[in-house]
């Protein structure tokens, strides 16, 4: 049996896209699909979602459209043992919503202090400058989880939705080559 045949032979995933609630019913969608359908957020409020989208897009172009806010929102809404954000493997203590709320609050407070506006309302250049300072823990008066760590985790989330999917591999031209493929391109 060739390698390619074996890959095909073992294909068949038990798990796939994430469960989103649409019209009171849970359905499997990718975060991108959830965003394009306007699926309501479970935990995030509108401002938090806006901040995540703006930050995600600053960190990894394409993260907004890939549904980073829906991705994080869905992951924060499920039990910790099912949540697969990079926060999990970086030893953040569940519930992960506590970390995200503290991080998003810190970003918008610091943005208000520095620029008089929330992060999402900054210009692209201002957002980039802000993130650069946050990465280096150089924002004075920062109140929340360390800026460098916030940068690392949110950047990882953005990487997950943009580059970590089957579509992300395709966009980079890297063969995905799964033994067992994710059922849906979450």
């Amino acid at each position: 049996m060739t390698s390619i045949e074996r890959r095909a032979f073992v294909k068949g995933a038990a798990l796939g896209a994430l469960a989103f609630t649409v019209g009171g019913v849970e359905i499997l969608l990718t975060p991108q699909e959830a965003r394009s359908r306007g699926v309501p957020f479970r935990l995030l409020n509108a401002m938090e979602a806006e901040t995540i989208e703006a930050l995600g897009e600053t960190l990894v172009p394409g993260a907004r459209q890939a549904g980073i806010a829906h991705f994080i929102d869905q992951q924060l809404s499920v039990p910790a043992e099912e949540a697969l954000l990079e926060a999990r493997i970086m030893n953040v203590r569940p519930p992960y919503a506590n970390f995200y709320r503290a991080a998003l609050g810190a970003i918008d407070r610091a943005s208000q202090n520095l620029n008089g506006r929330r992060f999402a309302d900054l210009s692209t250049v201002e957002q980039r400058d802000f993130v650069s300072l946050m990465r280096q823990n150089k924002i004075e008066g920062w109140q929340g989880p360390a800026g460098g760590f916030v940068y690392f985790l949110l950047r990882s989330d953005a990487v997950d939705v943009v580059y970590g999917t089957v579509e992300g591999y395709e966009s980079l031209g890297i063969p995905y080559m799964p033994h067992i493929a994710p059922e849906k391109r979450w």
Binding site: A13, E82, L84, I89, P178, H179, P182
Partner: peptide, 12 residues
């Protein structure tokens, strides 16, 4: 069969 080829699902 639970060992899905994905960094995301691999965190399970």
């Amino acid at each position: 069969k639970d060992l899905i080829s994905s960094d995301f699902w691999g965190r399970r």
